[in-house]
């Protein structure tokens, strides 16, 4: 927390600089940040909606919410594996908490995710989805997703320093996790009761995606107990992750 406050200005400036730097040479500039999830949504809609005939109410919105949240999670996790190696010149020359480098990367992805949610909001207006109180869950759900992702990334960052193979393992695990997170199908409707229940409640990304869809487009009941439990677990995971990094980060530079 103290690192977060001490380096607050750096995190904000560096995240802004990274966003600017990422698109400085591309023709479509920041439009890519919207286009990527939008194109993925279209691909899933064509494959699952039109070819396989899986139908969900407000299907494009259903997919866009899932894809947006998944892209955020998977990009952050993938980036954290090699974070220390990629910043080797920095970490051998100055002391900077590695969790600060991680926070900067996560903030960049939070910004892109928020941009996608602006498009989702516009689509909701086009679909004439009525305003409801359940939409207020948007803030805590995003907060839990960010905190859970940060905790996961801290642990992956540490393992990524220790084991060279982590990049491959994480990529495979993320592929498996995507299929079990209900990004392009409804876990509750398509999986048998018990499997649907387990995945929908014990897989945090699936749980958050389901809740977000309920809150934003279906005006459904968001399970408050589940939200509170995952909030607490995400905080615990993040605290453990930060402690893990803090206790070991001055040895990362000894990596040969």
């Amino acid at each position: 927390m103290s690192n977060c406050l001490k380096y607050k200005e750096y995190i904000l400036y560096a995240a802004g600089a990274r966003l600017k730097s990422e698109v400085s040479n591309s023709y479509l500039n920041w439009v890519w940040w919207i286009l990527v999830p939008a194109l993925e949504m279209i691909v899933y809609y064509v494959v699952f909606g039109l070819f396989i005939k899986i139908d969900e109410p407000y299907h494009p919105l259903f997919l866009y919410i899932g894809v947006t949240m998944w892209i955020f999670f998977s990009k952050c996790v993938t980036g954290s594996v090699d974070l220390v190696r990629q910043n080797r010149y920095i970490i051998v020359n100055i002391f900077i908490p590695k969790s600060v480098l991680l926070m900067k990367d996560i903030l960049v992805n939070v910004f892109k995710m928020m941009l996608s949610f602006v498009i989702i909001a516009i689509m909701m207006v086009c679909y004439r989805i009525p305003l409801s109180l359940s939409m207020l869950y948007f803030v805590p759900l995003i907060l839990i997703l960010v905190i859970f992702t940060f905790g996961t990334c801290c642990i992956i960052l540490h393992l990524g320093v220790l084991y060279e193979d982590m990049g491959y393992i994480v990529s495979i695990l993320l592929n498996i996790a995507m299929f079990f997170s209900g990004i392009f199908y409804s876990i509750e409707r398509l999986l048998p009761n018990i499997y649907g229940y387990i995945l929908g409640n014990f897989n945090p990304v699936a749980f958050l995606v389901i809740c977000m869809r309920k809150a934003m487009i279906y005006n459904g009941d968001v399970p408050v107990t589940g939200v509170v439990i995952w909030f607490v677990l995400s905080i615990v995971l993040s605290c453990c992750g930060v402690c893990l990094i803090k206790n070991n980060e001055n040895n990362y530079v000894k990596l040969r």
Partner: peptide
């Protein structure tokens, strides 16, 4: 502080922006 050159420089940013970025990185 260890005197090291160009820590944290981003080639896509301007010289002015890199001065600020590098300075903040030093704390």
């Amino acid at each position: 502080s260890l005197m090291a050159l160009g820590v944290g420089f981003d080639p896509e940013l301007t010289g002015r922006e890199n001065i600020i970025l590098s300075g903040m990185m030093y704390g």
